[in-house]
């Protein structure tokens, strides 16, 4: 590792922080734009002018919005995203209850999706243009174009209702051994994996194909290197950047983008928490969830960038 590379990484970090700040501003403005005064929404029919004024003061709503943005940002930086307007519990507690569930689902899904997607992506790239490549390609398009909730409903119907191999619900509280947990999460993970594998393997294939068609790989081939050796030793390291980027994108989606699966399988995760918060206009909770998802995305992309920088010989030498 040299100084130039460290500088590059530091630049990425700074850009990430800047983006996060912009995200905070966007999230704050978007939630501010929600119609209806929060105080009026909270008080409902008992919203007398005096009560509204009092509550507005208590919620700092009577202050200019740039100042409220600063207060909120200050709270966030200090690790305090506020208190839920609906049940008066700290937002940290509400999120803390759901975060482990979401992380569990995301990590299991990722550990299934990533190896399979890489395998499919690499093999289709190796034998591009073959019947195998075309069949996998069609299958992936076919699966990706079916709505997620239909896949989930169909899977529940087949594996839980008809065959009775697996449970229809994904959540059972209390301690469970590893296999019991796997059984519970099998269908949701399978559903998410189907969607994720399609995306990820196509991107892997695209990145590899570009490299495989470059001149230096052609050179290696002429030198008599076998196809496996070409892919693993010559092509993969150079395509690692885009591939890791694709993995990061798909994985960040697993945290906040799984609302449909959480609904169908009655799984108490973060996406459902945010949807509930939106429906009850619980702004601090909405803002905190949105910030969490964005931060997770940015962190993953940052990691992907760093991996790309570290792995790319050309970038390494620059």
């Amino acid at each position: 590792m040299n100084a130039a590379m460290l500088r590059l990484i530091a630049l990425r970090l700074a850009l990430g922080a800047l983006t996060l700040f912009i995200v905070a501003a966007l999230v704050f403005t978007a939630t501010e734009l929600l119609p209806g005064d929060v105080a009026e929404a909270l008080l409902g029919q008992s919203a007398t002018p005096a009560a509204v004024a009092g509550l507005r003061a208590a919620l700092h709503l009577d202050q200019p919005s740039w100042w409220r943005f600063c207060l909120w940002l200050g709270g966030l930086l200090g690790g305090d995203p506020g208190v839920s307007l609906v049940n008066r519990l700290p937002v940290v507690v509400l999120i803390g209850n759901r975060l482990p569930n979401s992380l569990k689902l995301a990590s299991i899904t990722a550990s299934v999706t990533v190896p399979l997607a890489l395998l499919l992506g690499i093999t289709t790239a190796m034998w591009r243009g073959s019947r195998y490549d075309r069949m996998v390609g069609m299958a992936i398009i076919g699966i990706v174009s079916v709505p997620e909730f239909l896949i989930a409903s169909l899977a529940v119907l087949v594996f839980a209702v008809k065959l009775r191999w697996l449970p229809a619900l994904a959540f059972r509280a209390g301690p469970q051994d590893f296999w019991a947990m796997m059984r519970l999460l099998a269908i949701p993970v399978g559903t998410l994996a189907l969607v994720g594998i399609g995306q990820m393997s196509r991107m892997t294939r695209a990145a590899l194909v570009t490299v495989l068609e470059s001149s230096y790989v052609e050179m290696a081939r002429l030198k008599g290197a076998g196809p496996l050796r070409i892919v693993l030793i010559h092509a993969l390291p150079n395509a690692l950047g885009p591939i890791v980027n694709a993995i990061a994108l798909s994985t960040s989606f697993l945290l906040g983008g799984v609302i449909i699966v959480e609904t169908i399988f009655n799984y108490p995760g973060l996406a459902k928490l945010m949807v509930d918060a939106v429906s009850t206009r619980d702004l601090p909770l909405v803002q905190a969830c949105a910030m969490l998802f964005c931060a997770a995305y940015l962190a993953l992309v940052l990691v992907a960038d760093v991996v790309a920088i570290l792995s790319n010989p050309r970038l390494r030498q620059r």
């Binding site: 839980a160 209702v161 229809a168 619900l169």
Partner: peptide, 17 residues
């Protein structure tokens, strides 16, 4: 509670509840 009706019925059909 299972708020989604389809999920609730499926859970019954699957023998979960």
């Amino acid at each position: 509670g299972i708020p989604d009706e389809t999920a609730r019925v499926n859970a019954l059909l699957a023998g979960d509840i």
